[in-house]
């Protein structure tokens, strides 16, 4: 598992922690898919720290870097009408500034 901090960036969440994806739909270039906004999941892994794509998309530096997490969701939490087994999951990479603790 990656360290709790990388360079001068510190991870705010740890694997196993429950989180909610923030809602809202700011204009611009967003890498958090709309279908996951407002959904609750669990931090599966720390994926590293990266320049913020929302800023890189407009020619800025994207600094300071942002922590990125793999977040796991139960399919039944993402899709109320999900027809598959309860154990099915979905994971996506989500930046820390799109996550809040619950």
């Amino acid at each position: 598992m990656p360290e709790a901090s990388q360079g001068d960036v510190t991870y705010g969440f740890a694997p196993g922690q429950r989180v909610r994806v923030k809602t809202g739909d700011p204009p611009g270039h967003i890498r958090t898919p709309a279908y996951l906004r407002g959904k609750e999941g669990v931090i599966e892994d720390r994926q590293g720290v990266f320049r913020n794509p929302e800023e890189l998309a407009f020619g800025k530096t994207g600094l300071p870097k942002k922590p990125l997490y793999l977040v796991r969701f139960r399919q039944h939490d993402v899709w109320p009408d999900y027809s598959g087994p309860g154990a099915d999951t979905l994971s996506a990479d989500i930046y820390e500034h799109w996550l809040e603790a619950i």
Binding site: G24, D25, P26, P27, I30, P33, A34, Y35, L36, V78, W79
Partner: peptide
Amino acid sequence: MAGMPGPHDIGGKK
């Protein structure tokens, strides 16, 4: 200004 998700953001879209 909040907008609609862009045309590319289609996970689960009908």
